[in-house]
C-alpha cells in the first residue's frame, strides 16, 4: 500500500512526529475558529447541540493524517471552540469530538489516493461510524452526568448531533479529500 503518488512508503497510522504535532495543532485551531464562526446556527431546544459544518475538520484530519491527529483535532479543537464561545469545559463532549476524528483516522491506512472512489467510500463509512460512536459516547455520558434516561439521551442529545454531523461530513469530506488529492499530487507528499 502506497501513501502517496510518489514515495511508495507504507503508511504508519500511529506515528506522532513533528509533522503530526503541527497538523494536530493546526487542525484543532481550525476546528475551533470555524466552529466559533458558525456558532450562530445553534438549534434551539435540542440539548446543547449546534449545526457545525466544522465537524468535517477532525474527520478529514483523521483520514489524511491518522487517528492521533484526528483525535487531537476533535478533542482539543472542541475545548478551544467552547473556550472561544464561552461555553465552558465539557470533557465528555470533547472526548466525543475526539472519537469523531479518531475513527476516520483508523481508516486512513486504507486511503492512499484521496480522489479514488474506493477511498471516498471508506471515508464516508468512517464519517458514519465516527459520528455514531463519538456522539453516542458523549450523549450516553449525559445519562451519568445529568441522570437523563435513554429516550432523552437519544432524542435530545444523540440524534440532533449525529444526524447533522453525518450530513456535513458525508457532503464535505469527499470535497476536502479531492481538494487534498490535488495538493498531494502537486507537491509530491
Amino acid at each position: 500500500m502506497k501513501d502517496t503518488y510518489t514515495t511508495g512508503k507504507k503508511k504508519s497510522i500511529w506515528s506522532f512526529g513533528t509533522k503530526e504535532v503541527v497538523y494536530a495543532a493546526i487542525g484543532a485551531a481550525l476546528y475551533a475558529v470555524v466552529t466559533w464562526a458558525f456558532n450562530i446556527w445553534q438549534i434551539p431546544g435540542a440539548g446543547n447541540v449546534g449545526i457545525r459544518p466544522a465537524v468535517v475538520i477532525p474527520m478529514f484530519f483523521g483520514i489524511a493524517f491518522g487517528p492521533i491527529v484526528g483525535f487531537i483535532t476533535g478533542f482539543v479543537g472542541n475545548i478551544l471552540a467552547d473556550m472561544l464561545s464561552g461555553y465552558g469545559f465539557w470533557i465528555w463532549w470533547d472526548l466525543g469530538n475526539g472519537i469523531m476524528g479518531l475513527i476516520p483516522g483508523l481508516f486512513s491506512a486504507m486511503v492512499y489516493k484521496y480522489n479514488e472512489t474506493k477511498s471516498i467510500i471508506w471515508g464516508e463509512l468512517s464519517v458514519i461510524l465516527g459520528a455514531g460512536l463519538g456522539m453516542g459516547l458523549a450523549a450516553i455520558s449525559e445519562m451519568w452526568v445529568s441522570g437523563a434516561d435513554i429516550n432523552t439521551v437519544i432524542f435530545a442529545n444523540f440524534l440532533p448531533a449525529f444526524l447533522t454531523n453525518i450530513v456535513w461530513g458525508l457532503i464535505l469530506l469527499p470535497i476536502l479529500m479531492i481538494a487534498y488529492a490535488a495538493i498531494v499530487q502537486r507537491s509530491g507528499r
Binding site: 497538523y23 487542525g27 450530513v167
Partner: peptide, 23 residues
C-alpha cells in the same frame, strides 16, 4: 452546505500547506 464549501475548502487547504513549513 453549498454556502459553506467555498469558504471551508480554501481555509483548510491553506492551513495544511502552511503547516509543512512550520514542521
Amino acid at each position: 452546505i453549498r454556502q459553506v464549501a467555498p469558504l471551508l475548502i480554501p481555509v483548510t487547504m491553506n492551513a495544511i500547506v502552511s503547516s509543512e513549513d512550520i514542521a
